[in-house]
Write a protein that binds this DNA or RNA. Structure first.
Lengths: 337, 337
DNA sequence: TTGAAAGCGCTAACAA
DNA sequence: TTGTTAGCGCTTTCAA
């Protein structure tokens, strides 16, 4: 019923090897033969079976992509970057959500390896020992995108989260704030959050500002989390006057929380975010934010994976992309967009 | 190097057929044998090769998902719904972006069929004749999610776009507006937009309000598109006092455009959206919006696909999900959330 | 309950 | 330049 390479060979009076050659663009085929075969392929509407091909060649031209949640704009951006580059290099992607659960991550890696992917790009906010172990066992390369692996065993693409966060907090400090809150998500054990927190504390210490644990909150990273956090902070006897938010949603939540209570941003409170998704421009005031180039991180990670799959020489397997801060209006500053 | 079913068979002193049976949960295996095989599988860390399995069984337990753009929140929501249900039924998804280009859609279908997916879920704003033809040729089922196919040849999941849009415009009319703008995206030939436009016109006509083509704009569907549209509308000698926006981003753009010029929403102008993504609550005033249940549409589409792949009896292949309007504050109304 | 063996559709030596 | 052939790792009759 379905037409196979064999049918094409018979119709074209050549061997299946020859058909295989023209399908794969092998040059060792006489032009006339190629033409004849191509005609038959067209006529019979022959479509190569990638599964059979994968079995025989041990290459599937598909890569696995494991991310926490595609419905989250930041991961969706990264996924788009990954997919664009994958397409560019003729790979397809098998996409799966881990919900940042170690158990799911483990089982997804297993499933994908079972499906014989040629490589995996993974975004994980917590590269745990178990994960590291599983990844080391992998017969195909795995690259981490926007996720730091402290063992430094795997290829990865990131920005310098600590430095970027440090600079963000500094801006608030330079504007004279002494009561600066840090709000982050999703989890207390998120690696990236950890760096942000460390940077936050270091920046305060370097400015001789005491770290007040009351001003540090770990939320679920959502808009509502921001909204609620504002309420909590506002009830403090000595509430914060500035906020360093780990994500745009959190930042917008804080801002709306404040505005809903009649506060003005940035005159009454100032807010700096860490993300700069398209949401950053969709609030008033627009968010000043550290730029987290998720699309690029995904794209570069995928590109790196193609190189590794190709056994090309890699100069540096821990890529650090440049970061910058986009100045808008949730923070008072002389530097304007 | 990699351990195969053959290695397991040898180690367990059974035939590969028996190993295959235990791996596939076939009941015709003596418990003792099963236990022995399972132990060897564990010890050897045997992982079945899904590609070989796919070739032999002609089933890959993977489905193709073709969407316009995963970085767009509405498609990302749908993708999450699709993936969740796919996972529930033990399928993996191959995800690809079409950018709503017919050419890419065609080639993606071809690629996925080549990869022997068991089915395809597709979101397309323009089910063109060529697409229909390609889809009819498909050896595996294809279901459309949030996309109407006017030929009614394929399984699909939607809401009643016309009716939903009609109700939205009616709200504006009931609030006394005579100058109601319609702004939509992404393309003039988008099917869903077509229904919205028809509903818009019909609602106005039914209310004896003349349709003014100046008040109809097709934008790229983005926030900036909304912002710019406001500028355009505002320059009219007789500008609109109410807006029916085809998406949340558009609606927020309109609102910010108005607010940036000192207008108050909903007192000066009223805006109703058609989407209700999480953005709807992340503006002030929060958006009143027709609820487009993208996650559900994706989930139901995938569920429908599993049934068709399973050759189950389908009562109705054109599923119409219920719709409703979420009342918030971008429209003046006595009905509150 | 188990095993033998014939494919599934293709790639990749190896020969010619 | 082309063909022959042996797998790739598994499922699935068919027999036993």
């Amino acid at each position: 019923m379905t037409v196979t390479i064999y049918d094409v060979a018979r119709e074209a009076n050549v061997s299946m090897a020859t058909v295989s050659r023209v399908v794969n663009g092998n040059q060792n085929v006489k032009p006339a033969t190629r033409k004849k075969v191509l005609e038959v392929i067209e006529r019979l509407e022959y479509r190569p079976n990638a599964v059979a091909r994968g079995l025989a060649s041990k290459k599937t031209t598909t890569v696995g992509v494991i991310i926490p949640d595609i419905a989250n704009i930041i991961y969706a951006e990264a996924a788009r970057g990954i997919e664009d580059i994958a397409t560019m290099y003729s790979y397809n992607i098998i996409l799966a959500n881990s919900d940042q659960s170690e158990e799911k991550e483990l089982s997804l890696i297993d499933t994908m390896l079972g499906k014989q992917v040629d490589g995996i790009v993974m975004i994980s906010d917590a590269v745990t020992p178990k994960l590291v172990q599983e990844m080391e066992h992998s017969p195909v390369p795995i690259v981490l995108a926007g996720s730091v692996d402290e063992t430094n065993k795997f290829a990865s693409v990131n920005i310098d989260y600590f430095q970027a966060a440090y600079e963000a907090v500094q801006i608030l400090i330079n504007n004279g704030h002494k009561r600066i809150a840090f709000i982050s998500g999703p989890m207390q054990f998120t690696i990236n959050s950890k760096y942000k927190l460390e940077a936050y504390k270091k920046a305060l210490e370097d400015a001789n500002i005491e770290v007040d644990e009351q001003l540090i909150v770990f939320e679920d990273g959502s808009y509502d989390g921001g909204l609620e956090s504002w309420e909590v902070f506002n009830k403090l006897e000595n509430p914060p006057t500035a906020f360093f938010a780990g994500s745009d949603e959190l930042a917008i939540g804080i801002i709306h929380g404040a505005q809903d209570h009649g506060r003005n941003v940035p005159n009454d409170i100032e807010v700096i975010s860490f993300e700069n998704s398209k949401l950053a421009r969709m609030v008033r005031p627009r968010l000043t934010s550290v730029v987290l180039p998720l699309y690029d991180i995904g794209a570069v990670a995928m590109r790196l994976l193609t190189k590794i799959m190709n056994k090309e020489e890699i100069e540096n397997q821990s890529v650090l992309l440049p970061h910058r801060i986009e100045y808008r209006h949730s923070v008072k500053t002389s530097i304007q967009e």
